[in-house]
Design a protein around this nucleic acid. Structure first.
Lengths: 350, 350
DNA sequence: TTGTATGCGTTATCAG
DNA sequence: CTGATAACGCATACAA
C-alpha cells in the first residue's frame, strides 16, 4: 500500500487477500460474505483508513451523494441561517449525503439550479425563501428533480415545511388577551408576501373570534426607523394597550417609538415580535417574540427529501409551530427577572 | 442525443461530427483546434446544453473541484455567517470550484476533515473559528492539504486572514478621545481567547500612548446579563465617561446596565461595541460598533486558497481593518439622527 | 489538427 | 460465497 496516495479498494483487497468485488460487497452489504472473510476485509479497511472515493462511487451510480442549497440572496443578515444549515447538513450526513452550497449570480433564481443539474452536480435540493408562485418549484417539478421547500407551496405533492405564522401570532394575541389586554393592535408588512400575509391572517382571525377590533392594523416595511416613526399615529388612531408586530425588526422599532413618546414598554403597553432574533433578548426591555424552530424545519426538510430520494413516498406539506418566548416587553421587567434563564451567547465570533 | 439522459461528451462529439477528444480539447482549451471545428463543437455544446459531469471530471483529474467548509459548532447564532459564506461561495465559483458544507459530529475538531480527506471529498478547506494552537492547522499542514484560515495563525506560511481587532478598538478609543473623553474604561472577556486578547491589546496600547489610565479594565463572559450587572461596580470603581466593550453583546448589556442606573447612554456616558451585530442598529440608543468586513475576509481567503491550489505562491497572513460605525451611543440621539442612513432590513426571513 | 485507446476507482453483472 | 470484467464519463498520451 503506497504511502502518499489515498488507499483504493484494490489496496484493501490486496491487504485482505481478496478481490475488489468482495471488498465492495462488504462495504455495501449487497451480497453475502462469509464472516471470516468479512472480518479480514474490515480489518484491512481499518488498517488502511479506506473510504470509497465519492467521485468514483458517483460515476457508475449515476448520483452525486450531494444535496444542493442556494444561499438566500438577501443583502440583510439572517441570524437563523446557521442553525438551519447546521441541521440540514447533519441530517443529510446521516443519510450518507453531503451538502453543496451555491449562490445565484444574477436575478435569475432558476439559473443556478439549471447549471448544477447540467453538470450532474447534486441529487436534490433544499429550497428556502419560497414566495407565491416560486419559479424554482415549477422548474424542478417539471424535470422530476427531488427537492424540499422551506415555505408554503400550493401543490400538495411538493415537500414543504413551513412555520405556522398564523398560529404564532395567535399565540401572541392569546398571551396578551389572557393578560387582560382588549385593545390589541397589529403592525404588519404590506400585503403580498407569503410570510406577512400568513401572520396577518392569524391576527385577523383570532381578533374576530375574541371579539376584539380586527381593524387595529397598521402596515409598514420591515424597517426599524419606519416602525419607530409610525408609533405616534398608531397611538392616536387606535389607542392600543398592546401591539403585536409581524417581525422583531418592526417590534424593536415600535419599542423605540414608544419610549420616544415617554411610554414604558412592558409596563404601560405591551409589545410582541416574531422571529426571536438575537436583538430580542439583547434589548431593554427584552422583547417577547416567537422563535422559529429552525432546527426542526431543517431536519424535517432533509428527512423527507431523503425519503423521496430513496423512493419512499414522503408526506408533502407540514407546518411547525413557533414557540412563544415571553420577555419583559409583555410582562414588565420585574416578573421577567424571575422567569429569565437566557444562556450565554457568543455571537459575532465566527 | 437521448432525451431523458444528461448529454455526455460523446453526444456532443456525434452532434458536431468530431471525436470526444476534440470536444474535450475545445472545452479545456488545451490543444489547438481549427476555428471551424471549434465553432461546430461550441454549437453542439450549446444545442445540447452540455456540461462535463463533475464526478467524471474528478476521477482522472484526481481532484474534486470542491472546497470544504465546516460550520462553526457554536450553539449561539452568528449573524455574519451568511455574508461570509456568500463571498466564499461566489469567489470559489469564479475559479470553477464549489463549496462543500459539513459539520463536526463530536468534540473532535479534526475528525470531520480527516473523514472528508479519506473519501477524497475536497481539494482544500476554509477554516474559521481559529484559536491558539488550533489542532486543525497542524493536521492539515502535516498532510500538505491546502487551506486558508479566518483567524490568526502563528506559522506565517499558512494562509490566514483576520480582522484587526486591536486596530478596531483603537479606532473606538480614538473616536471617544477626540470627543473629549479622558476616563475611558474597557470591558473585555477573560484572557485566553485569540480574539479577546487582540482587542484588549489594542485598548491597552493606545490608552498608554494617549496618557489615559490603562487600568480601567473589567472582564466578563460574553453575556448580556452578566455585562448588565457589572455596571454598578464599573461605575464606582472607575467612574468612566466612556466604556469600550470587547463585543456588542457585552456593550448592549452595559447599555442596559447604565439605564438601570438612571444614566442616558450617548448623552451622559458613551459606549462602543464590536462586531456590528444587527441588534446594534436595532436598539435605542443605537450602538456605535465596529463592522467586520466579512465580505472581504471571505473573498480574500478563497482567492489565496485558489492561488495555492493552482500552484502559485500566495501570501500568508493578512489583517483587514474593521469599520467604525458611529451611532447614538457615542454621539447622542440628536446628532445621530442627522448622520443616520441605515438601510431597511429583512432579517429573520429566510 | 484530429482521432484512438487507456485509465481514473467504483459498482454491478455474471461465471465459477 | 467469491472473483473476473464491463461499464460510468471524461482527460490525456500517443498515433495518424
Amino acid at each position: 500500500m503506497p504511502s502518499g496516495r489515498r488507499p483504493t479498494i484494490q489496496d484493501v483487497a490486496n491487504h485482505a487477500g481478496v478481490s475488489m468485488a468482495t471488498v465492495s460487497n462488504v462495504v455495501n452489504g449487497h451480497a453475502h460474505v462469509r464472516d471470516g472473510t468479512k472480518k479480514r476485509v474490515l480489518e484491512a479497511i481499518d488498517a488502511l483508513g479506506y473510504q470509497a472515493s465519492r467521485a468514483a462511487r458517483s460515476l457508475p451510480a449515476g448520483r452525486t451523494f450531494l444535496l444542493g442549497y442556494c444561499l438566500p440572496d438577501d443583502t440583510s443578515p439572517n441570524a437563523a441561517l446557521d442553525v438551519f444549515l447546521h441541521h440540514v447538513v447533519s441530517t443529510a450526513a446521516r443519510a450518507d449525503l453531503e451538502v453543496l452550497l451555491f449562490t445565484q449570480k444574477d436575478l435569475d433564481k432558476v439559473q443556478p439550479y439549471a447549471e448544477i443539474l447540467q453538470r450532474g452536480g447534486a441529487d436534490g435540493f433544499v429550497l428556502s425563501g419560497i414566495d407565491y408562485n416560486d419559479t424554482r418549484v415549477d422548474f424542478l417539478e417539471q424535470r422530476g428533480i427531488p427537492f424540499a421547500c422551506f415555505g408554503r407551496v400550493a401543490d400538495e405533492s411538493v415537500i414543504s415545511v413551513d412555520v405556522d405564522g398564523a398560529a404564532g401570532i395567535q399565540a401572541a394575541v392569546s398571551h396578551l388577551h389572557s393578560l387582560g389586554h382588549e385593545r390589541i393592535a397589529f403592525v404588519g408588512w404590506p400585503e403580498g408576501s407569503a410570510t406577512g400575509d400568513d401572520r396577518f391572517d392569524g391576527f385577523s382571525t383570532l381578533a374576530i373570534a375574541l371579539g376584539l377590533d380586527p381593524q387595529r392594523v397598521v402596515r409598514t416595511l420591515n424597517d426599524f426607523d419606519l416602525a419607530r416613526k409610525l408609533v405616534p399615529a398608531l397611538l392616536s388612531d387606535h389607542r392600543p394597550s398592546a401591539v403585536v408586530c409581524v417581525s422583531d425588526t418592526v417590534a424593536l422599532g415600535v419599542l423605540a417609538g414608544l419610549r420616544d413618546e415617554g411610554l414604558t414598554p412592558g409596563g404601560q403597553i405591551a409589545v410582541t415580535g416574531f422571529d426571536d432574533v438575537p436583538a430580542a433578548s439583547l434589548c431593554a426591555p427584552s422583547l417577547t417574540s416567537l422563535r422559529q424552530p429552525m432546527d426542526r424545519v431543517g431536519a424535517l426538510l432533509v428527512e423527507r427529501l431523503v425519503a423521496r430520494l430513496t423512493g419512499e413516498d414522503a408526506p408533502g406539506s407540514e407546518l411547525v409551530e413557533p414557540d412563544l418566548i415571553v420577555r419583559e416587553s409583555t410582562i414588565g421587567a420585574s416578573e421577567a427577572a424571575l422567569a429569565d434563564e437566557s444562556p450565554p451567547t457568543q455571537e459575532g465570533i465566527l
